[in-house]
Every structure is written in structure tokens, then in C-alpha cells.
Design a binder for these strands. Structure first.
Lengths: 336, 336
DNA sequence: GTGAAAGCGCTAACAC
DNA sequence: GTGTTAGCGCTTTCAC
């Protein structure tokens, strides 16, 4: 058995009907054609025993639809992107689309190249997650009539769905304020923001949320309270160390911008006695399950993957991707 | 500009040449056809300004190759699978193939369905990573002439590349033996194996490596030293707790089978004073970066993702997938 | 109820 | 050096 790759013509010959009849039976349009039930049964049986599978290159070529939906992500081996990929697959399948997730390593050239390859395969739409240069991808997609939407990092040429960084930062800051213990030394009785890149969109919004919340309670926030030391763990380790030395101890509370930064912070904290840690309250903007295994409590902000992708799919479904709107999705605050 | 989706016919008309000439120029076969340099240049220029992109559905249909290579993984949001996906993409691209990674949620039905969908799109080969029912996928692939190889978990109907679990367990056990401090109480002066499923292939090999290493040094290993309490973190937490009570403390060293199990163990260890932890030596068969942030030292076995996938690609390249051989790749031992 | 035929966009003989 | 032609496997009028 298993005649290598049977086509509708093979089946047609075996069933003694025409190829168009087979085609209609196999793709469900046979009701409209009012094909005899026994013909349907015969062909379906034959298809099963010949292990027939539709050639989607051919059917896609004919109908000019591929059934494919793509998603560009920076990396596979990151908790957030992995979770997004997982959720994306489920949602895509629920819409009858076949998901293709590809990583582009935060390389704008690879982003474009990959988008182009996906367009070659005639994807029907594209989700652009955390792209370095989303607008370049937008231009390419637009010129090929491919629906697309930016997620997590906004672009200007297509609609975007992002986390509500301002709101999330406000929540986390308020929470740190509420749950931290006042310190005697004035310069240590403050909240400090650590990590991120000052020119970066997400960081800016988070710093704003942080500052506005503090300002509302205490008046001015000093520049020294904000240390945008980048996203590298090594930079963060150096920054927290410097802060510790400057303050003569840990501050009242620490707003840590991303898990990467958290990792650097932990490397430093491991060198301190437990009693010192107990006096400081920690919050991290971003979520990672490993936090559950740390020796000190930590507040975390977790992005709402379902919310983000749900909104992104809504935009694709509505065909409103070209409007350039920005939708903000509120994250969740968790204590670990 | 941007005539929505230009074809080689559009370009042919504009350049005043035939479609086959355009085709040859655009896919690189023009040297053999000895097409005039100026024609080549003209067409290439035109293609660029018309934003032409090859329709791979059409070219694939014609040549009966898609340029696609698939990989089935259980989950996207796991460190190991994420890393494998990443490495897979790089290696696939290096071979001029376009990678498609899809997760199948450890669901045998979804594994088959996904493999079938990928075959529909005419993938040229398939990597089957950690599948629940690899042989079912093999049957499907074989009946459609699709080259494939099992990775991480072996099958019987196609060649497999897996970690050398026996060797890795030997290394880890020997290392724990070497670096642990003897205990006064006899029942605590032993190594204990925690986690995994006894009937599971990987667990069996690891238990063997563990037992053989100990037997060579001390004679018999008692059944009580091996606690295959599953892969759930909650089960592991209960198991380590029970062991602790039974022994009246932590043992000399603990062989923890997988990071999932490690998570359960940590939840229990957090309830103990640091001094107790210091007397026990910990090893985990599997690697996760979060281990660097734990408060106690830990030996870990890290699978060699490059080695595994390299060997898997070698099998595909050699076309020897049907031989049903099993290749074992040695993992690395790391101290964190 | 079903078949014949055209064509999706591309490639590769074969022609000249 | 380049054009003509015949499909790849499928869908979809239109015909009967």
C-alpha cells in the first residue's frame, strides 16, 4: 500500500469519477454540488486508505490563500516570547490558520529577510513581536498587501498592541510604597528605579509611571533615584553595587526594570546577609517563574499574553491594522 | 509604484523579454543559460523596483520542493525546547532551508495532526523532538516519503539522537561522590536519586548510571535510595520532605532528576536553615539558568543542544534516517 | 449529480 | 542568448 503521494487524479481514477468531484468531496463543497452520498463515501474511504493528503502548495496557488499566519519573535529561549509563541499557536489554530513562529534575533536585517520569506510563502497575516525596526517590516507587508500588527513594541505604520507600561509601573510603585518599611537614613528612605534604556519607549513610560506616583505622594523625584543602567545583567550588578555603596546600604525599595536586570541584582544580593535584604522591598517589572525560588519576597508585573494577542488578533480580524492605533493592555501585579 | 504582487510575467512584459528568461535570472540559473549581462541587470533592477517576491507556492509546486523543514516540539515556553528551537533555526538556515517550529503540547493526536499539516505544506524533512508517540509520526512521514529523525526521545521506526543519559548520570554521580562530605549517621551517608518515572526510558538510563557508579565503589545500592516520584514539582516537594523526615536530615548528596523536580526540592529547602543545606551536595540532571541565583551551590548536567541537532542534521543529510539507529550525545557537567 | 477545461505562478525541456 | 511550451495539483466556472 501507500502509493507514494496520491493526487486527486489518482483517487478519481480509482473511484471512477472526475477530479473535480473528488476535489469537492475532499474540501467540503460537495453539499452545494449535491453529490450522491454513496459517491462521497466511496471517495472518502479511498482517500483514507491511500493516505491522501492535500497538497497545500497547489491549493494555495489556485485559491491564492495559504492558510498560514506568521509571527516574528526576537528569541525562542525567553520566557515571555516562548509564552507568547505558545498562546499565538493556540489562537491561530482556533481561527483555522496554521501558525509559523520564527525568531529574528533582534537583527533588523533578519527581521526584514524573514518577513520577506514568509511573504514568499504567502502568509495571510503577520504578527510582529518586539521588533527592532517594526516600520521597515510594515512597509514590506503593506507593499505586498499583508495584514500585520505590532505587539509589545509599537510601530508608527501599523496598529500596535502593547503593555500598559505606565499603568503597570504606577501599580508596582504604589505597591512598593505600601509594603515597604520606612528607613531612618533619609537617602535610603526612597524608592529607586534600576535598569532599562532611558531613550527606550517602554522604559520611558515606566519611569513616568514610577515618578508620577512618587511625585503625587512626596513631591519631586530626584534624578539620582533613576538609574537606567541598560538591560544587561552585568551592568545591573555594577549599578546596584554602586547604589549600595552610595547609600551605605539598600534603599527602602527597589523598582527593577526587567528580569535581566533582576538577575544582575540577585548576583549582588547573594553577597549580602539575609538581614539586610529583609529591610528592602523588591519589585520587578516583568515576570519569571524562577522568582518563586528566591530567598526573598518579590513583587512582579506580569504581561497579559492572552490579552495582548487577543487584541492583536482582533485588529487583524477587523482589518483595521493600517489605522496605526496603539492599544494598551494592562499587566497583572503578582507577589511571589 | 508597488503594483500589488507582480509576477514574472509582469516583469517579462516590462523588460520586454520572456518569462523564462526572467525566471532564470531571478533564481540564479542564468549563468547556464548564458543570458546577456545587460538583460540580467535590467530584469534585476525591475524586480527590485516592482518589489517582486517569488511565489514559493508556485515554485514549490513546480519543483516539488518547498524549502521548508519542520520541527515538532512539546512546548515553546521551556528553556530546553526554546534553546533547541533557536539552534534548529540557525542550522536550518545554514542549509538553505526555511525552519518551521511547531509545538504539540505533548498530545499524541496533535503531534500527528501537526505532522500531517506540515506534510501538506510539503516540508522536506522533519525533526521530531521529545514526542509522546514518535513511531506514529514516523509511520505518517514514511508513508509520505518525508525524511525525519527523533531527537531527545527515541523511537523505533526512525533513527534517533538522544542525550547519553547513562554517561551523564555516571558523571554527575561520581562528581557528587567526590565533592560531598561524609556524614556520621550511616543512613544519611548515602546518595539519593529523586524524581522521574521508573518506566520512562530516560529515567531508567539515569538510574542505571547512578546505581552502577555507586555499586562500583560501595557494593549494593538499596532500593530506598531511588525515589522516582514523577516529574511534578509538587510530588518532588512531598518526596524530599518525606526523605528528610525518614533520614532525620538531608543526605550526603542528592541526585535530582530534572529541573521540574528541582523546583519542588527548592520549595522544601527554603524552609530549612542555611547551615543544613551546607552539609548536603546537590546535583541536577538538567540545566536551567536560574540555578545561578540559588543560595546554595549546585552541579548540573546540561544537554548539548548543538551536538544533538548537529547529529540529527547529519542523519537527515546522509539520508540514513530509516536505519533506526540511536546516537547518543554526551551532555556537559556544570557547577553553578 | 457530475465532467471538461482553464488557469494560479513558476520551472525546465526543447527549440531556434 | 532567448522564446515556446507543457505541466506541477488543485479549484472553479460552465456545461450537460
Amino acid at each position: 500500500m501507500a502509493t507514494r503521494k496520491s493526487t486527486i487524479y489518482d483517487l478519481a481514477k480509482l473511484a471512477d469519477v472526475s477530479a473535480s468531484t473528488v476535489s469537492a468531496i475532499l474540501n467540503g463543497t460537495w453539499k452545494e454540488r449535491r453529490i450522491a452520498a454513496k459517491t462521497v463515501e466511496k471517495v472518502q474511504l479511498l482517500a483514507a486508505e491511500q493516505q491522501y493528503t492535500l497538497n497545500r502548495q497547489a491549493s494555495g496557488l489556485r485559491t491564492s490563500k495559504s492558510g498560514l499566519i506568521g509571527m516574528l519573535i526576537p528569541l525562542h529561549n525567553s520566557r515571555f516570547f516562548g509564552t507568547m509563541a505558545q498562546t499565538f499557536e493556540v489562537m491561530a489554530r482556533a481561527r483555522g490558520l496554521y501558525p509559523i513562529v520564527v525568531s529574528t534575533l533582534r537583527d533588523p536585517a533578519l527581521e526584514l529577510e524573514t518577513a520577506s520569506a514568509l511573504i514568499s510563502y504567502r502568509i495571510e497575516s503577520l504578527m510582529v513581536l518586539g521588533a527592532t525596526d517594526p516600520d521597515a517590516v510594515s512597509r514590506l507587508c503593506t507593499s505586498h498587501g499583508v495584514a500585520h500588527v505590532n505587539v509589545d513594541l509599537p510601530g508608527t505604520l501599523a496598529s500596535s498592541v502593547i503593555s500598559d507600561n505606565y499603568w503597570g509601573a504606577q501599580q508596582l510603585t504604589a505597591c512598593l510604597l505600601l509594603h515597604s518599611t520606612p528607613q531612618r537614613v533619609a537617602r535610603r528612605n526612597k524608592l529607586y528605579f534600576l535598569g532599562g534604556v532611558a531613550s527606550d519607549y517602554a522604559t520611558r513610560r515606566r519611569v513616568d509611571g514610577f515618578s508620577d506616583t512618587l511625585t503625587a505622594q512626596f513631591g519631586l523625584v530626584e534624578p539620582g533615584q533613576i538609574e537606567a543602567c541598560g538591560y544587561e545583567s552585568s551592568g545591573a550588578e555594577a549599578a546596584i553595587k554602586a547604589l549600595y555603596l552610595r547609600l551605605g546600604g539598600l534603599p527602602r525599595a527597589l523598582f527593577i526594570n526587567s528580569t535581566m536586570v533582576l538577575e544582575g541584582v540577585i548576583l549582588f544580593l547573594k553577597t549580602l546577609p539575609a538581614a539586610e535584604l529583609a529591610r528592602c522591598t523588591f519589585g520587578c517589572y516583568d515576570w519569571d517563574p524562577f522568582a518563586a525560588y528566591l530567598s526573598f519576597p518579590l513583587w512582579m508585573v506580569r504581561q497579559d499574553d492572552g490579552g495582548l494577542l487577543g487584541a492583536a488578533f482582533d485588529i487583524l480580524d477587523a482589518g483595521s491594522y493600517a489605522e496605526g492605533r496603539v492599544v494598551e493592555i494592562k499587566p497583572a501585579l503578582l507577589s511571589m
